[in-house]
């Protein structure tokens, strides 16, 4: 990204705002709140415009920023019981969400246990990837390894965990956790 593009703020806005809005309204199901989040996202982007050249994908960066802002606000609103009830009552697929959650809780206890036993570098990469949500590239950068090594190590980690856990649990359940 060169300097000219960097400051072509309005082009960025035109290109991304709609997609962002449609993603955010799934989190905050209210037009005003969602547009407020999109607005804040671009204001924040403006504030850090000097660093945009360090960002690999502006699209996912914008999405992550917007998502963080949205969840911060959602969390704040959910403290009120009325909002919580409204949110839960209007949510379209409560049942499948709760199902996924319960399976996740049960399995994560087991996974945590197995993750502890992974070789240390592999464990570190796996944790950064799955629990901290970093990309392979970000992990590679942070640990000073190549993208390829990170990818390989994480896929090995998943293989090991699957093998250990599939003895006790069916594969479809494990998919919920890993993918």
């Amino acid at each position: 990204m060169n300097n000219q593009d960097l400051f072509d703020f309005s082009t960025l806005y035109k290109e991304h705002w709609e997609n962002l809005f449609k993603q955010i309204i799934r989190i905050l199901p209210d037009e005003d709140e969602a547009s407020d989040v999109v607005q804040q996202t671009f204001v924040d982007l403006w504030d850090i415009r000097e660093k945009l050249s360090e960002i690999r994908s502006i699209r996912s960066f914008l999405f992550i920023m917007a998502r963080n802002i949205a969840f911060k606000r959602l969390k704040q609103s959910l403290r009120e019981e009325t909002y919580r009830n409204n949110f839960a009552n209007n949510y379209s697929s409560t049942e499948s969400l709760v199902d996924d959650w319960l399976v996740y809780k049960e399995l994560s206890t087991l996974i945590d246990h197995e993750v502890e036993h992974l070789p240390s570098k592999m464990k570190e990469m796996f944790i950064l990837s799955r629990f901290e949500g970093l990309s392979y590239a970000e992990i590679a950068q942070r640990l000073g390894k190549s993208d390829k090594t990170v990818k390989k190590q994480i896929s090995n980690a998943i293989k090991i965990l699957k093998l250990k856990l599939s003895a006790k649990y069916s594969t479809p359940l494990l998919l919920i956790l890993f993918f």
């Binding site: 949510y91 379209s92 969400l97 996740y104």
Partner: peptide
């Protein structure tokens, strides 16, 4: 992170 992911996923 998981619950946030699930909220988006199912919504």
């Amino acid at each position: 992170k998981k619950i946030e992911h699930l909220i988006v996923k199912h919504a």
